[in-house]
Amino acid sequence: MKLSRAVSWFLLAFGVWSWFIWATFVRNLWKDASGLAFDAAGEPTAYFWVHLLLAIASFLLGTAVGVIGLRGVLALRRESRRGPDA
């Protein structure tokens, strides 16, 4: 399957964006002082574990989507170096 240039760059950008957003979220979750992520004793709550699992799933999916986009961009770059008649 051949991806267009626009789709390849979109997928790559989506993967990078996913990592940026979820890394920021996990950092904020870890520092949470509102009582949602950690109880009064400092133990993680169900809210913490659920959102940590969501973040891990999003990291994995963002990585997969980004890798697909990167492979598409690299394939298009290789193709343009070879020329259209190769």
Rank of each mutant, 00 (worst) to 15 (best):
A86S: 14
A37W: 04
V26K: 06
G15L: 00
E43M: 12
V26N: 05
K2Y: 12
I56N: 08
A23K: 02
V16Y: 00
Y47H: 06
A13L: 09
P44G: 05
G42L: 02
V16W: 06
F48V: 03
F25P: 00
I68E: 03
R81T: 11
D85F: 15
T45W: 09
R27E: 03
L3Q: 08
S8D: 01
L74E: 15
A57N: 12
K2E: 15
R71C: 08
A33P: 06
A37Q: 02
V26D: 07
R82E: 11
A57P: 09
R78L: 09
A37M: 07
L52H: 06
G62M: 00
Y47E: 01
W9T: 03
D39A: 08
I56R: 12
G72V: 07
R5C: 09
V7P: 03
A13N: 03
A13H: 02
L29I: 05
L36S: 13
R82P: 04
F10E: 05
A23W: 00
I21M: 09
D32V: 01
E43I: 09
P84C: 13
W49K: 11
L29Q: 01
A41G: 07
G35Y: 08
P84L: 13
F25A: 00
R77C: 13
A41R: 10
A57C: 15
W17M: 14
A46S: 11
A64I: 11
V65H: 00
A23E: 06
F59E: 05
L12V: 06
V50C: 07
A46R: 13
G35N: 07
W22N: 02
L70R: 07
R82Y: 08
R82M: 11
L52E: 01
A57M: 15
F38V: 00
A33F: 07
K31Y: 11
I21H: 10
M1P: 10
L60P: 11
F48Y: 06
V73I: 07
W49P: 03
A75E: 09
L54E: 09
F14M: 08
S58Y: 11
A75T: 10
A33S: 11
F10I: 10
G66C: 04
I68L: 10
V65A: 02
F38S: 00
G83A: 06
D39W: 09
T63Y: 12
L61K: 10
L70E: 05
G15A: 04
L36R: 15
W22H: 07
A86P: 08
W22V: 04
A23C: 08
P84R: 14
M1K: 12
